[in-house]
Write a protein that binds this DNA or RNA. Structure first.
Lengths: 174, 174
DNA sequence: CATCAGTTTCAATTATTTCCGAAAATTTAG
DNA sequence: CTAAATTTTCGGAAATAATTGAAACTGATG
């Protein structure tokens, strides 16, 4: 009976890791990174680099790079077990915190550069007197205004506490 | 003087197209697609496939595939000039509408599949009696709840009118 | 029905990203 | 200091995605 429960769990967990990894692709996150995150998010205990390598059957270099990246994002913490030399990694498991971390990162990668681009283009096209020039500038201006708005919204959302977000959402979904 | 204005415009526009294209990459949108969108968003008149090919120096196949894709997304409309046989394309220029279109598409590609995955995993792990099994199931349940929430939020936002969104935002940013 | 303008498809190529594996560097222990 | 354990780096292999170029198709027109 205990064996069967373990099998079911292992099966479900492996499926989750595989699927979550495949999904990472759609999210612009590489597959290994998403798999490691899934693995650790569903691990009872922190895991070492070697354990991760073995569990996912990936190379050391790959495991290493993606563990580092996940730590940089703030989705993993490196922990040291006392008396042990190597590092273990444990995942952030709170879904809201995971969300805010990812939101911050995506904002940084997707919104901030866009803002720079449209600002520059709006600036460069200021005061061109032809009708086409005016139209272009106006288009850039609107884009800039919108992206700035999106940027501020993203900051706010990323800072929100879970409770406040729910409250906010109630209004929106009501 | 007129020439100088035209040069400035052309320069700014080319920069916008190039940069917006590069940014597309970050957004999980391919470069050509983003460039075509940028080109048409800043075009005074609708353009034909051949004009797009020439302006961006890309092949017919590439131009064609990405124009179709943009039409499918709803970011371009195909228009027919009377007396002309070929199709011309014109871009949606309203930034809010562009945003809602992209939001819908990304939701479809990023959130919906995630929801399926976590639902399946939550289902499969229901009732596993070991402590690890319970923890896994609980993690999946929380993920499911959150992704469902995100899904509903995305739907709402994608449906919003610009005015309402601004009003909403005022509360958030206030 | 032959031709022409234009559209669509697709196999082959090219570019980009990811991953491996092994070596180099670093850290800790004895 | 030396040796063992562990982390980090990196060049090239493998996988994936984007793009080309040319051929096949469509359907209007004389």
């Amino acid at each position: 009976m205990k064996v069967k429960a373990d099998d079911r769990l292992q099966h479900a967990r492996e499926e989750f890791i595989a699927q979550w990894g495949a999904m990472g692709t759609q999210w612009g996150i590489n597959r290994t990174m998403a798999q490691i995150h899934a693995l650790l998010m569903t691990a009872a205990e922190p895991m070492s680099t070697d354990e991760v390598m073995e569990a996912l059957e990936i190379s050391r270099g790959n495991a290493h790079a993606n563990l580092k990246e996940l730590v940089a994002w703030g989705l993993l913490r490196a922990v040291v077990k006392k008396g042990e030399r190597r590092e273990y990694f444990e995942a952030e498991k709170d879904v809201w915190r995971i969300f805010t971390v990812v939101a911050r990162e995506r904002k940084r990668r997707e919104i901030d550069p866009a803002l720079e681009v449209v600002r520059k283009c709006a600036e460069e096209s200021r005061g061109i007197a032809t009708p086409e020039g005016r139209a272009f500038h106006e288009q850039m201006r609107q884009l800039e205004e919108f992206v700035e708005f999106a940027s501020r919204m993203a900051d706010r959302v990323a800072m929100m506490k879970h409770g406040f977000a729910i409250q906010m959402a109630a209004k929106l979904l009501g």
